[in-house]
Structures are given as structure tokens and as C-alpha cells.
């Protein structure tokens, strides 16, 4: 780690922050994205009686 920050600390910090942030957001999105997909598909499921696909768009 000390070698990482020895040369050009701005870029070293940015690289370290990138990898840390990217790992965290990947885990968060992988976990909560599934719930988002379920909710989206539930809300999009059309009622059985609704003939929505035949109606013209205004």
C-alpha cells in the first residue's frame, strides 16, 4: 500500500477510490437491483381484462 501512494498520490488515490467504490456499488446494485426488477415487472403486468395492445396511441 505504501508503494501505491509513493508516486503521484493524486492518481494513486483516484485509482484506489475507483476500485473501492466500484466494488461497493457492484455489490449494492447486484443485491438491490433484483428487487427493482421484480417491482418493475409486477407493476407492468397488465390486468387480464385490459385490451391495451389494440388501442391506438393518441
Amino acid at each position: 500500500m505504501s508503494e501505491l501512494f509513493a508516486g503521484h498520490p493524486f492518481w494513486a488515490l483516484l485509482v484506489a477510490a475507483c476500485l473501492l467504490w466500484y466494488s461497493t456499488i457492484t455489490l449494492a446494485v447486484a443485491w438491490r437491483g433484483i428487487a427493482d426488477i421484480r417491482r418493475m415487472l409486477r407493476d407492468l403486468r397488465p390486468p387480464a381484462h385490459e385490451p391495451s395492445s389494440k388501442e391506438p396511441r393518441p
Binding site: 456499488i25 438491490r32 437491483g33 418493475m40 407493476d43 407492468l44
Partner: peptide, 26 residues
């Protein structure tokens, strides 16, 4: 698998405007 949820042009083009934050980030 999800193609059966598409019944309108709005579903096809903007997913029925039902997207949440985490799916949006992904």
C-alpha cells in the same frame, strides 16, 4: 423471458416508466 410484459409502445421504449434507482445505475 420479459418480452411478454411488453404490450404497448411505451413499454417497449421506456419500460412503462417503472425503472428504479439500482436498476437504473446498472
Amino acid at each position: 423471458l420479459v418480452r411478454r410484459y411488453v404490450s404497448k409502445v411505451e413499454d417497449f421504449l421506456v419500460a412503462g416508466r417503472q425503472m428504479d434507482v439500482h436498476l437504473g445505475i446498472a
